[in-house]
Nucleic acid binder design. Structure first.
Lengths: 169, 169
DNA sequence: CTTAAATGGTTTCAATTGAAACTAACTATC
DNA sequence: GATAGTTAGTTTCAATTGAAACCATTTAAG
């Protein structure tokens, strides 16, 4: 069956690769997904157990805590979340009293979100924990490796953004 | 408010860090989640458009195609999926006719899954596409950087596994 | 044998997510 | 100042996911 590739009508630049040689566990998207899901799950459980908040809620708290009050739309840009995610996270945080909304009198569609007392307290406690987790995660890396990692992730993210936008089919 | 840290009763090894200096977009778990979600979304849309399969289904096809027929439980180990995910993906692929199930006569709880004709055809077509995407993603990296990346991901994944298992709270 | 425990896999239920539709408020144009 | 088009944010609906309970079968223990 030496002409299976022809019979199957391939047209990729990887036509020549024997499909049987493919290894899922060496496939970068799979590795990234696996690593990311392990990390996220661990962090998510921590936040949930300690503060009863989800990851999207954590992102809002992190942004509002470090950059100060801003609107949902501004958060959307900074946290790479879509407006639905932001809206839902804000609704929960508002209900649980961790953020406050102040409608902008100049444009009543907008409202400025800010941390409440309890929100600020969560921020103060959660940031050191988050940093501890990150430190644990990277504790097997040298300083140079950490620097390399940041650079690599930056490059990959740029490519990934290109891949996502504009039909790439 | 110079003793806020004391007032807030911190106890982490990152106590000294000013919480306001925290930057979400420099936080590794966030970066990983962002990159992974961009990559996954892009690939997911490709698979969906071309073959009408989801990412979990793709994983089964990839494993069965490269490693040959095996049971759900064996797939679970190789693809880092839990048994529910495998069961659901197998159910869909079975319904769409891309895999076949053969109950093990020696242990009727198990069944061996294998690619059908159409499943094999999808495998043959999808692997080159997947590799193309991966190549695009890493095309901004030198060979050395690619090698570094693999090594880094491996180290991080090992740490992440430790972080997930065994209460780390 | 008979019961208890373990294993392979499926189902169920609630919570989360994604995409599209929607509402309200504002801006620009005529 | 009416109308059309934008923008900010919310809601809705279906699909996906996670966790626990469940079923069927096999293995182990008495």
């Amino acid at each position: 069956m030496k002409s299976q590739a022809i019979a199957e009508g391939r047209k990729s630049s990887h036509d020549g690769i024997s499909a049987s040689a493919f290894a899922l566990d060496a496939f970068l998207p799979y590795r990234l997904a696996l690593l990311s899901s392990l990390v996220s799950r661990s962090i998510q459980k921590l936040y949930e157990a300690e503060f009863d908040i989800s990851i999207p809620e954590w992102r809002l708290i992190a942004i509002l805590g470090s950059d100060g009050p801003m609107t949902a739309n501004e958060i959307r840009g900074r946290a790479a979340m879509d407006k639905v995610q932001v809206s839902r996270a804000a609704a929960k945080l508002s209900k649980s009293g961790h953020i406050l909304r102040r409608t902008d009198p100049d444009d009543r569609r907008k409202s400025t979100l800010s941390l409440s007392e309890t929100g600020q307290s969560i921020y103060n406690h959660i940031v050191p924990m988050a940093l501890d987790r990150e430190a644990f995660l990277t504790s097997a890396l040298t300083e140079k490796e950490k620097a390399d990692l940041i650079k690599l992730l930056e490059k990959l993210t740029k490519r990934a953004e290109k891949m996502t936008s504009k039909s790439f089919l």
